[in-house]
Design a protein around this nucleic acid. Structure first.
Length: 646
DNA sequence: TCACGGAATATTTTT
DNA sequence: TATTCCGTGA
C-alpha cells in the first residue's frame, strides 16, 4: 500500500509543476488556487478530480461546479481519460443545474411546484414585454426602457443584492423618472412568475440559497453528501453563489476554488470579484497556491500583459513568466479611420496566410459585438472566411423557440408566454385574440377544448392549430414524434416568415436529433433552458469539418479561455475601450482594464492593437482620437507603436 | 384589431 | 446588423 502510494504521487509529480502538484494533493481544508492566464487551470482541476477518486474518495461525494455545462463535461471527460470510468460519476455541472436538481427534490420546502418551469432569458424578456405593454398608457411621456433593458435591471438587482433604486441610480440614471413604474413592473413580474410556477435563472440561485439557509436539516444533508467541492472560474461567482458555497461547507471545509481575479469580467452581471479576494477571510484556514508559469504565450506578450495588469488597484500580485523567450514585440497601430483599421486587419491577415498560418490560428477581438460590422464587410469583400462568436445561440433563435413553445404548452397549459408565442404566429391573430384564447384555455384546463370554446373569429390558421393540438393531446407520442408533428405544422409558417428558411429548417432537423435522446418532455424542456446545445447547427457543421479554415471574430467576453497564435484587438480607442460609459466609474474602469488583459492574454505569439482616429461619439458629442488609456504610455520596447495606417 | 413599414436604438452576456 | 417599437391605414 505504502509503495503504491508513493508510485502514485510520483506519477502526478511528473505530469504537473510543483505548484500545480501542491494544489492537486491538498485535499483537506479550504484551498484557493490563483490561476493566471494560460497556467494550466483546467489541467489542475482535472488532475485533482482524478487524484481524489484514485485515493478512494467516492465520486458521488465530489461536487464540481462550473459556469458552463461544456466546461464541466470537458473536465470530467479528461479526468476519465486520466483515470477510469469512476470519474464520470463525479457530480458535476453548473450552479444552475445543481440548483435545479436540488430544488426539484426539495420543492415542497420552498412552496414550489416540483414540476416548475424554467424561464430562459428571452422568456423573461417576453414576459416583461407583455407586462410592459399592459402598463403602457401610464408611461407614454418619455422613453421608457425596453423590455431587454428592464430584464437587465431586474437581474442586476437580484444578482448584486441591491435595490432597484440603487441599480437605477448607479447604472441607469436616465430612467430615474420611471423608477416607480419600473418598481411596479418588477412586482408584477415576480407575481406572474409565481402564479405560473416559473423560475428564471436568478430565481434558481435565490431559492437554493434560501433553502440551505432556512432549513438546517436540508443543509446538513446536502453538505454532508458532498465531502469535496471544487469550483471553477471563482472570480465570476456572484454574492448569492458565494453564499451557497459557504452554506455547503457546513459539515466540512474541503472546498477548492480556482480563479483569476485579473480575469474577472462579469461584474456587470453581478459577479463580485471580491469573492475571490475575500475567500481567505471567509475561510481562515485557507491555503493559497498561485500558478504563475504560463504555457501559452511567449515572453514579449507576457511582458506586455504583466504591464497592463500592473495598473489594477486591487489584486493578488502575480507575475506570469514563460519558457518561450523569443518572439516579436506586440504592436499598436493608429489607423486613420474605421475603414483603414479594417484594411489593416485584412492586409495583415493576407500576409499571415502567405506565411502559411491557418485562419484558425487568428482571431480579431473587440469590446462590443457591433465593433466588427465594418470589418465583416471588408472580410466578405475579400472572401476571407470567418465565424463570429458570442452572437446568437441555437436555442435562442426565433424558429427554435417557436417549436419549443408548442411543446411547452403541451407540458403546461398555463404557460401564457408560450401560448402567446404560438398564437401570434398565426395570421390574423394579434395580442387581443391571443389573450381571449389563453383565457379560454385556462377556463377549460385544456388547450384543445380551450381553442374550441374561445369566442374568436374562425381562421384557417387557428383550425390548423386546433388539429395539431388535438393530435398531440390524444395520441401518446415520444418527444421526438411530437417534435416532428409540430415541425410539419410549423414549416409553412417558417417559410412565410423568414427569407432564410432553408438554413433555419436545418436547425429544426438538428433539434429533432436532440429530441431523440429524451424519453419524456419535462427533462427535455428543462435541458433546453439550462444546458442548451451551445453551437448553432451551422457552427457544429463547420467545427467538425476538417479543412474548414476560418478566422474567428469574437467579443472579448466570449474569447475567455481560448487562445490563438495571432490576435488582433480592434477599437482600442479611448472612449470605446474603455467605453465612455465606464470612464467616470472607478470599478467599471477597473473591469475594462481586466478585459483588456483578458484580450491580450489570448495571444500565443503575435499581438496587435488597432485604433482609428477622429471618431465622433454621438452620445457625448466628443471626438475620440486617443489610444486606450490602458495602452497609451507603455514604453516602446514593450509595446511598439506604428503610426498612421491609411 | 391586425399588419406593415419606417425609425430608432444598441456594451459586454457562462445560466 | 438585427431587433424592437410605434404610428398609420385597412
Amino acid at each position: 500500500m505504502e509503495k503504491s502510494n508513493r508510485e502514485f504521487q510520483k506519477r502526478y509529480a511528473r505530469a504537473l509543476n510543483p505548484d500545480q502538484l501542491a494544489a492537486v494533493t491538498h485535499t483537506e481544508g479550504p484551498l484557493l488556487v490563483i490561476a493566471g492566464a494560460g497556467s494550466g487551470k483546467t489541467r489542475t482541476l482535472t488532475y485533482r478530480a482524478a487524484y481524489l477518486v484514485e485515493k478512494g474518495v467516492s465520486p458521488s461525494a465530489i461536487l464540481l461546479l462550473t459556469f458552463t455545462r461544456k466546461a464541466s463535461q470537458e473536465m470530467l471527460r479528461r479526468a476519465t481519460q486520466l483515470l477510469d470510468e469512476r470519474c464520470g460519476k463525479i457530480a458535476g455541472g453548473t450552479f444552475h443545474s445543481f440548483a435545479n436538481a436540488t430544488l426539484r427534490q426539495y420543492a415542497s420546502h420552498m412552496g414550489l411546484d416540483p414540476a416548475f418551469g424554467i424561464l430562459d432569458r428571452s422568456d423573461s424578456e417576453n414576459l416583461i414585454g407583455m407586462l410592459r405593454k399592459e402598463m403602457q398608457p401610464a408611461n407614454r411621456r418619455r422613453s421608457f426602457p425596453r423590455r431587454k433593458t428592464l430584464a437587465d435591471i431586474f437581474s442586476r438587482a437580484v444578482n448584486k443584492g441591491l435595490s432597484l433604486e440603487e441599480i437605477i441610480d448607479n447604472d441607469y440614471p436616465h430612467f430615474e423618472s420611471h423608477l416607480e413604474t419600473i418598481g411596479c413592473l418588477y412586482q408584477l413580474f415576480e407575481i406572474r412568475k409565481q402564479e405560473h410556477h416559473f423560475l428564471d435563472y436568478d430565481d434558481l440561485l435565490v431559492y437554493l440559497c434560501r433553502l440551505l439557509a432556512e432549513y438546517p436539516d436540508v443543509q446538513d444533508r446536502i453538505s454532508a453528501r458532498y465531502r469535496y467541492i471544487m469550483v471553477d472560474e471563482y472570480q465570476d461567482t456572484n454574492t448569492i453563489q458565494a453564499e451557497i458555497l459557504y452554506l455547503l461547507t457546513r459539515t466540512n471545509q474541503n472546498i477548492m476554488v480556482v480563479g483569476d481575479d485579473a480575469q474577472s469580467i462579469y461584474a456587470f452581471r453581478g459577479a463580485n470579484f471580491r469573492n475571490i479576494i475575500d475567500f481567505p477571510k471567509r475561510f481562515p484556514a485557507t491555503r493559497t497556491v498561485s500558478l504563475e508559469e504560463n504555457y501559452r504565450s511567449n515572453q514579449p506578450v507576457l511582458t506586455l500583459t504583466n504591464t497592463i495588469i500592473e495598473r489594477a488597484r486591487e489584486k493578488f500580485t502575480k507575475n506570469l513568466f514563460s519558457q518561450k523567450k523569443d518572439g516579436s514585440t506586440p504592436v499598436m497601430v493608429n489607423a486613420e479611420d474605421e475603414y483603414s483599421q479594417s484594411r489593416f486587419i485584412v492586409d495583415r491577415i493576407k500576409d499571415l496566410q502567405k506565411q502559411n498560418l491557418p485562419l484558425n490560428e487568428i482571431a480579431v477581438l473587440f469590446r462590443a459585438s457591433f465593433h466588427s460590422f465594418d470589418l465583416e464587410i471588408e472580410l466578405n469583400r475579400e472572401g476571407i472566411a470567418f465565424v463570429k462568436m458570442g452572437g446568437f445561440k441555437f436555442v435562442e433563435s426565433a424558429h427554435i423557440k417557436d417549436v419549443l413553445a408548442h411543446l411547452r404548452v403541451m407540458a403546461n397549459v398555463h404557460d401564457r408566454i408560450s401560448w402567446y408565442r404560438i398564437l401570434l404566429l398565426i395570421e390574423k391573430v394579434g395580442p387581443k385574440t391571443a389573450q381571449k384564447i389563453y383565457e379560454a384555455t385556462l377556463a377549460e384546463k385544456s388547450g384543445y377544448t380551450g381553442l374550441l370554446s374561445a369566442k374568436v373569429a374562425r381562421s384557417k390558421g387557428l383550425e390548423r392549430l386546433k388539429k395539431l393540438i388535438a393530435t398531440l393531446d390524444t395520441q401518446p407520442k415520444t418527444v421526438c414524434e411530437m417534435g416532428e408533428t409540430i415541425i410539419d405544422y410549423y414549416m409553412p409558417i417558417l417559410k412565410n416568415r423568414y427569407d432564410d428558411h432553408p438554413r433555419r429548417a436545418k436547425d429544426l432537423e438538428h433539434l429533432v436529433e436532440i429530441m431523440e435522446r429524451y424519453r419524456s418532455l419535462d427533462p427535455f424542456l428543462t435541458d433546453m433552458a439550462l444546458e442548451p446545445p451551445t453551437t448553432s447547427f451551422e457552427n457544429t457543421l463547420y467545427a467538425n469539418t476538417p479543412g474548414s479554415d476560418r478566422l474567428t471574430l469574437s467579443t472579448i467576453h466570449s474569447a475567455k479561455g481560448l487562445e490563438w497564435n495571432t490576435v488582433f484587438v480592434i477599437w482600442t480607442l479611448d472612449g470605446r475601450f474603455p467605453s465612455v460609459h465606464s470612464l467616470h466609474k472607478e470599478a467599471e474602469l477597473e473591469e475594462e482594464l481586466r478585459l483588456m488583459y483578458v484580450a491580450a492574454t489570448r495571444a500565443r505569439e503575435n499581438l496587435f492593437f488597432t485604433y482609428p482616429s477622429n471618431v465622433y461619439d454621438r452620445s457625448t458629442g466628443l471626438i475620440l482620437n486617443r489610444p486606450s488609456r490602458f495602452l497609451d504610455d507603455i514604453p516602446d520596447d514593450i509595446l511598439e507603436k506604428e503610426y498612421e495606417y491609411r
